[in-house]
Design a protein around this nucleic acid. Structure first.
Lengths: 190, 190
DNA sequence: TCAATTATGTACCGATAAGTACAGAACAGC
DNA sequence: GCTGTTCTGTACTTATCGGTACATAATTGA
């Protein structure tokens, strides 16, 4: 009894979740098959390059999501300060208050750091850049350093929240970074 | 021609470096053997529990190092502000300005997060605690939040520095956190 | 309706994984 | 020297790894 036909895009979110949960090396094709409900035949049909292509496709999809849902809105926001606030909202929602790991950050630390170096660097470079520009437009004092601090702070908050198994750690750190941005603006403009 | 006898403690640093480089899942016994120069016989003689025992031994050794070289001195410093400065120096040296990954942080994100949850949580809890106490003794305004911010910030700096392949990112973030602590003290005491 | 294309399951491949068994070398104390 | 313990290399087992081959089922388009 063959199963329903699925598209390549359909399986990407499930694929992402498996990689998030087990890391690149820890994710086996058997596990992927179980989670997605797809056999090797389908998997290699959609991703001829195997596991490595699956991972790059996932990273690509994540980059696309952030571009569309966070970076572009922030870039085009008429009110940069409000745009930054929306970015923090989206961050908290996406990472589920620290319960969900940042796959790009995890890959940066772990095995795949060489294999996926370009995609990893691009993701973070873009995030820092777009935030720096928004802070700049909002008249912030020290936009470059603040943008870098915020992106690093979010990653650190994920690590610490997971390590302590305490989502409150993530929530409070996001709150603090939000205030840091706000302060930076009121001082810069006031 | 058998090789020189080595002690279990001798191989722990090499073991740690392999885990840091390839992650828990990515590290095979063959790789460990190559790096340490030890065969399976020796490896399983020193670590009867296999790979998992090797990892816990490494985490234990790391915890011991931090306790002895960072936490205890910070706890017993007569001048807490100077002790905090020394902690940042030790942090920069240990993580080699972001070129070296924090194995505990990496494990927190990746596969071993359940297996080693206790050790991971203990390491970070202790770090935040000892820093909070030192800030408190130094008369800081908001010791608890600042301590948490610093530890998360260090982890985030490692992630970002590695992702962008730029040690300067780590150096500048450490500098900023250092200033955050200093500001917090001068305001609190002045 | 009937090719051509797109999906899918299954059987298989060589390589390698972690772990075990064990003979024997190095070493300690005597 | 001898003896018992500690250490080490080699060969092995069983399971799983990523990946391939290929027959067949579903779907598409004309």
């Amino acid at each position: 009894m063959p199963r329903m036909v699925r598209s390549r895009e359909d399986v990407l979110p499930e694929l992402a979740e498996v990689f998030r949960e087990f890391g690149y090396e820890g994710t086996s094709l058997a596990l992927i098959g179980k989670r997605t409900g797809l056999g090797k035949g389908s998997l290699y049909h959609f991703f001829p390059g195997g596991k490595e292509e699956m991972a790059t496709a996932v990273l690509e999809e994540i980059a696309g999501w952030f571009e569309q849902e966070m970076f572009a809105p922030l870039d085009q926001a008429v009110d940069p300060a409000a745009g930054i606030g929306a970015m923090f909202d989206a961050t908290d929602a996406y990472f589920r208050t620290g319960r969900r790991v940042c796959l790009v950050g995890a890959f940066a630390l772990d095995a795949g750091r060489d294999r996926f170096a370009g995609q990893i660097a691009g993701y973070f470079r873009r995030w820092v850049d777009v935030l720096r520009l928004a802070l700049d437009r909002a008249g912030a004092r020290d936009a470059a350093a603040t943008a870098r601090q915020v992106v690093a702070g979010i990653q650190g908050a994920i690590v610490l929240a997971r390590a302590l198994d305490d989502p409150e750690v993530f929530a409070s750190e996001i709150g603090r970074l939000r205030r840091t941005c706000a302060d930076c603006l009121t001082v810069g403009t006031g």
